[in-house]
Nucleic acid binder design. Structure first.
Lengths: 188, 188
DNA sequence: AAGAAATGACTGACTAGACAGACAATTAAT
DNA sequence: ATTAATTGTCTGTCTAGTCAGTCATTTCTT
């Protein structure tokens, strides 16, 4: 390797993409992203073959970051409600701490540029959460519903809750708890 | 008026836009929409000044249609749970009956081409639903949460439920009920 | 150790294609 | 006859991706 690709530049591009996509949506020109990252237009394409590649890698990275943040410090011995609240709260905190990442992740998640392969990888990153949900579901009111339904409900509720925490940061804590209560009443 | 615009053509354009946007997203070229509607490229612009106008009007029309369908036949004298289920079920049926409209509405709702004015009009169409929600909330577990939070949760739960009904049409009825139960446990 | 050669990251001007909207000509309604 | 809808071509703009050339870094060769 004559000159190694710099991790630094890759990160700069990812961060720029996060910011620009959060602000302008997926229509954001690669040129804008490159400029925002402080690299030449063409450089972006030495790090990511196509725009779709960039989008997919960004999605995976953000999703994984959220998942690992949410799971960090989880004690599997604690009772289920406590574990669930741990994951819930840490997810919310991640979103509050990085609203741009959250917005970008939102846009990316809806896009149909994201390949099934990427979605499946993202799903893997969420596997421990899914496992926890499985144990919660098993003897709650949704014990007869398919697992994926439960996960989807959890995700949409946490999505909605996060929106409100960001909209009213003053009541963030209150909304966080209220959202969790809704979730727990629904499946716990 | 020398030659009146035909309601027919307007409808054709709207219907075509629904189909094309459902399939290709908002990136869909106006040319494709016009072709699909069986009119010339330029004609589209006599009915809608800009693409953004088309998008806004379509959003409003679909949202309104969904709302009126959901509310049709509602008896305000019935007990709250019954009324809620009426609205819930009719919403689900609308989505199941016109998956393309639903998909398009989804895409449009996320877009930032939709102006605040349009969103506010759409909100108005949903007013009776909001009123119903208000009465439900008033003495349920969410009585201390802001109204908009309750509505948002209702919308995201119905969104998620509809996804599952479409994904597994065989269990549509079961999912419809299960989704409503989640909702009712959450706020009712 | 010196320096020549090879490698590949990096640049930004460039290309090819797509797209929204304009417009001149045509058609149809009053 | 007049007015406005309708048509489809045309245009200016925008964008993903390319490419010829540059420059930093490593790897031979002597």
């Amino acid at each position: 390797m004559a000159k190694p690709k710099s991790e630094e530049k890759r990160n700069a591009i990812m961060a720029a993409a996060t910011r620009v996509i959060a602000a302008q949506g997926l229509g954001a020109p690669t040129a804008t992203i490159a400029q925002e990252a402080g690299v030449a237009n063409g450089t972006l394409f030495t790090y990511f073959e196509t725009k779709a590649d960039l989008i997919n890698e960004l999605y995976l990275e953000l999703k994984t970051e959220m998942a690992t943040t949410a799971l960090d410090g989880l004690r599997e011995s604690a009772d289920l409600r406590k574990q669930a609240f741990h994951v819930w709260k840490r997810s919310m905190n991640w979103g509050m701490a990085s609203p741009e990442k959250r917005r970008a992740l939102c846009q990316l998640g809806v896009s149909d540029e994201i390949t099934p392969a990427t979605r499946s990888q993202a799903h893997q990153a969420m596997a421990p959460v899914a496992e926890l949900m499985e144990r919660i579901r098993a003897d709650g009111p949704m014990r007869n519903a398919p697992m994926s339904f439960v996960v989807a409900i959890m995700e949409s509720l946490s999505e909605t809750t996060m929106d409100f925490m960001i909209r009213e940061p003053g009541n963030a804590d209150k909304h966080c708890k209220a959202g969790f209560d809704v979730f727990w009443r629904a499946v716990g």
